[in-house]
Amino acid sequence: MLSMKNINKVFKTDLVETHALRDFNLEVKEGEFVAVTGPSGSGKTTFLNIAGLLEGFTNGDYFLDGVNISNLSDNKSAAIRNEKIGFIFQGFNLIPDLNLAENVEVPLRYRGFSRSERDKRVKQALEQVGLGARMKHLPAQLSGGQQQRVAIARALAGEPRFLLADEPTGNLDSMMARQVMELLEDINKAGTTIIMVTHDPELARRAQRNIQIVDGQVCDFTMYQGGQPQLVSDNVQAVS
């Protein structure tokens, strides 16, 4: 599903070179729920941006759903993001001047779906997150947890193969965080591959697999089965 081999990402300024990712290797299988943890500045967000085609990488190989991501045109990247990837952001990133239905509809319009198809998917996605009755509300009229559910609905409406969540519960209280997490688990059970970046070890533990990034490398790889942690490898290489 997702395969990164020897990915390097170097940020250059006039004075310094910063290696955000170094020889980064990761394989994620279809249907997995992977939690990515790591300290601030470790490269989690850079990994997420590269995985989600939000930014390029300096060198290495990246295949997503069989497509070689290296040297894709800007339009092709946008099309892959739109079709294959669903994004959930820490700050929800809803458009404040659009109502819930219009927000969920945004990626569907870029896909070029017909109006009836868009309406059907918007309704379905909002109902899936329990907000089918509030389609005409504005984001500001909702709680943080509800806003994140709208963002999840927006990510789901395009029926992506692959969901990328960036601290999805980072701005929520524990009860709302739990609800959102349960929703993500349900989505994963339905077959969508999920990679979730989080600071919260509790949440990370609920994922099937947990990888830790330190200094731009995968340095710890743990698989949880039935909620019991098992150390699989303490090596840099992460292979499942």
Binding site: G52, L54, D74, N75, A78, A79, R81, N82, E83, F87, F89, G91, N93, I95, V106, P107, Y110, R111, R154, G158
Partner: peptide, 16 residues
């Protein structure tokens, strides 16, 4: 700015 970035992330091309 963030909204434009989000739209781009959701599949908007530069032309969009």
């Amino acid at each position: 700015t963030k909204q434009i970035g989000t739209r781009r992330a959701l599949g908007a091309t530069k032309r969009d």
